[in-house]
Amino acid sequence: MKDRPLFRFVVVVLAWLPVAFGVWYVLAPIILWPAQLLVTAIARIGFGDLVSNVEAHGATLSFVTTLKPGQAAAGGILSVDVNMLLYSFGLPLFVALTLAVRERGWWRALLIGYAAMLPFIAWGVVADFLKNIAITSSPLVTSQAGFSALERDMIAFAYQFGSLILPAVVPAVAWVLTHRAFLERLRASADRLQRG
């Protein structure tokens, strides 16, 4: 196996992944608590007229809105549930990548990566909520939300980017940025192989 450092790295990542996924899933309410705080702050500050409360049920956030789901006066209020796991599956990937390298100060890299990912998890969750009330709900709800066509387009893009790209890409980017020395060693080992 000519690519031994990389091969070893991949094997160790694959060994850590099930462990990391298991811990992430079981401890999600705790691990994602800072993201929940961030989402709540964004909802209160940015969409205070639409969101009256954000409640956590495990890894699911319920956005209690001021919007009415139907025309009846006693129709209650609309609540939107968002699964935070959908936007945080990159955490176990980042942990597995970091533990596979385990450079000096790996715990610091873990903390930096974790902190870096929280805003993007919040992005996905908030965009999911906005997509629900602005685009995929009934016309009665979307009209109450009052977003313009341009704002709905921006919400659609933010949701797509926040669900299809960011959850997977951010951990990889965070890992690359926090492990530049490892990458340099990988390149150097490839240079040695090609020379010798």
Binding site: L17, A168, V169, A172, W175
Partner: peptide, 13 residues
């Protein structure tokens, strides 16, 4: 929803 998403990105990386 979770595992394959991570594995595909690991593949890309």
């Amino acid at each position: 929803l979770y595992v394959w998403q991570g594995l595909i990105m690991l593949d890309v990386l």
